Each structure stands twice: as structure tokens, then as C-alpha cells.
Simulated assay, not measured.
Amino acid sequence: MEQLLSDPPSCVQEAGTWCQQVWRMTGNEWLAGSATWLVAKPLRILLIVVVAILARYLVRKVIDRLTRTPENGSENKLPALLRPLRERAPEVLGPLIIERRRQRAKTIGSVLRSLTSLVVFGLASIMILGELGIDLAPILASAGIVGVAIGFGAQNLVRDFLSGIFMMLEDQYGVGDVVDLGEASGTVEAVGLRITTLRDVNGTVWYVRNGEVLRVGNSSQGYAIAVVDIPLNYNTDVNTATAVLEQVAAEAVARQSIAPDILDPPDVLGVENVTPEGMQLRLTVKVRPGRQWAVQRALRAEILPAFERAGFEPPLGRLYSPGPANSA
């Protein structure tokens, strides 16, 4: 007992220190001299961890609130995070525009949450190591070397993620857009940070890495042009055919089925192409994005029968018309 109640350590003379408090409570020289490691540093480390967890929780709650899609599902309301960003989503998407905005906000929010966790816990780890008296310079140097090695080995993965982030921020394309990504084309079904999912006209699903996309052709932004080429025989009177085409096109675009998709009156450009078989008249119409194919089909369905009624023959119509069967 006499050995435990030995002379007080020098740190006891420092007022307000843990050493002084522990000496008063225990009278133990070793406990008092080690009070900084046994009490002060664990408490400071615990405080750092608690503050880091609390800060991460609060920041993530703010991010979740900013990325939340309005409950009423209104197409005119954006998540708060997307309001400062440019949006190119076409109105023709209808209900799909909500899913497009939801996926975009969810992906950007996921990136922000990951960055928040990395920054907060990274700073907390550095502060904890500092409290333990560990020299951070060798650790940071080693971490830098390891990071370079990992980055070099996973450069394709890093490129995919960076491309996905910029694609999201710039809204180059989204759910419901009809795009051409070079190797694959079709309707976008899902957009992620690493992979974009397309479904082509044959129903095949394509998974395209964002880092491999060098160019994007988007047919669903701003407006589109419906192009209709009408094949004609060389004997056709071009002026008469042009007049019939203008009249039929004007009547067709006024129909209720495609009238809401038309932005400008149809424009007959005249003879577009001449081939050994015949020639082609071209008609163009400015339409809402994504509706060009439906308008083209509707116009063809009206124009071709009208040309037949007017007596215009298709190219080489007589040559390929069925004749009497050859006798054996």
C-alpha cells in the first residue's frame, strides 16, 4: 500500500489536468502519469468518432432531402438538387420523365453520399491518428503510392465512373431517350454511374460502359425531323406529284392522331435522289422529340394510297408486276 501511495508525479502540479484529477481520486502515481493515455485521449477519440458520425448523418439527411422526388409526382416539379442543373428531358416522355428525374437524382445523391462518407471519415481517421501520436507523413506517402497503383490498375473503372458523373450532371441522356452510342443504339432503360442500359428495336438489351461512350446521338432532345421519301417512276410529272404531296401532307398533319406532335407545317423539298430505278421526293416535318417515327408511319400511310389513286406508278412497277405463268 505504501508503494501505491508514492510521491506525486510532476504533472500533478498542473492545475486542471487529468493527471491531477486522477491523483486526487486514486493517489496512484502510475495511473496519474498515464491519465492522458487512459482517459484524455480515449475521450477525445470518442468525441471525434461521435462528431464524425453525427456530421455524416446530418449531411446525408440533407442530401436525401435534396434528392427526394415530390410525393405528388408532378412532372413540373424537380428534386431540389436538380433545379440548378440543366435538364434536357423531352416533354413527350410523359410518366417516364418522373423515373428519369428520380434515377438522375438518386445517382447524383449516391455520389454525394459516398463523397461525404469519404471526406468525413477520412478527416476523422487523420485526427485520431494524430491523437495517438502517429507520424502521418509515411502513412500518407504509402497511401499515395497504393492509390496510384490501384488507380492505374482500375483506370477503366475510374473512367467509367467519371464519365457517368459528368453525363449525369450535363443530362446528356436519360431514361426514355432514344440514343445512338456508337456500338449500340436504342431506348435508354436505366442510367448508372458505370453502365447505361439500352434496349434496341429488336428487344435486345445492351449494357454500355460509360467510359466507352465517345459520342452520343440523342433523338429525343429539343425537336426532331420526320423525313418521308416517296419513290416515283421516271415518267412521273414532278410538279404534279409535288402538288399532290403538299395537299395530302397538309391534310394528314391536320388529323387528330398526329396533329399534337407537329411543330411546323410540312415542307416538300422536291427531288432528293435519282437512282437507276427511279427518283425520290422528300417531305420533312418538324415534330416533337421522339415522335418522328410515328409521324413518318402516319404520313406514309396517307401519301402512298393517295399517289396510287392519282395514277403515279412506283419505280419499275411494270417491270416487277406479276405476269402470266410460264407454261411447262
Rank of each mutant, 00 (worst) to 15 (best):
S74T: 08
W30K: 10
S220A: 11
E272H: 08
M279H: 07
L66G: 03
Q20C: 01
A190N: 13
N233F: 01
T26A: 00
Y223H: 14
S10P: 06
R104K: 12
V274C: 04
A254L: 10
T284N: 10
G16K: 11
R86F: 07
V213Y: 05
S327E: 12
L281K: 03
A141L: 13
A55T: 15
R318Y: 12
A250G: 13
L118G: 03
S125G: 12
A241G: 12
A301T: 11
A298I: 07
R56V: 07
A325R: 12
A143G: 10
Q20N: 11
A124D: 05
I48P: 01
D264P: 00
L316G: 01
E212V: 14
P305I: 08
L281P: 08
D135T: 05
G323Q: 15
L263P: 06
R65M: 06
F121S: 09
P9Q: 06
E170C: 08
R297F: 07
Q20A: 11
L319G: 04
L198H: 04
I165D: 08
V178E: 08
L115H: 09
L4P: 00
S163W: 12
W293T: 04
V205E: 15
Q20L: 06
F121W: 13
I98A: 11
E29N: 10
Q13D: 10
C19D: 03
E246H: 04
E170A: 15
N326L: 15
A80E: 11
G278C: 03
V253S: 04
V12E: 01
A328W: 12
G147P: 00
N218L: 10
V253E: 04
T107C: 10
R194L: 06
I139G: 08
Y57S: 13
E246M: 06
R44H: 00
W18C: 14
G311D: 08
L82P: 11
K106C: 01
V227D: 01
A243T: 12
E183I: 00
G73N: 11
V271D: 02
D229Y: 01
G33Q: 13
L140F: 15
I225G: 03
E170P: 01
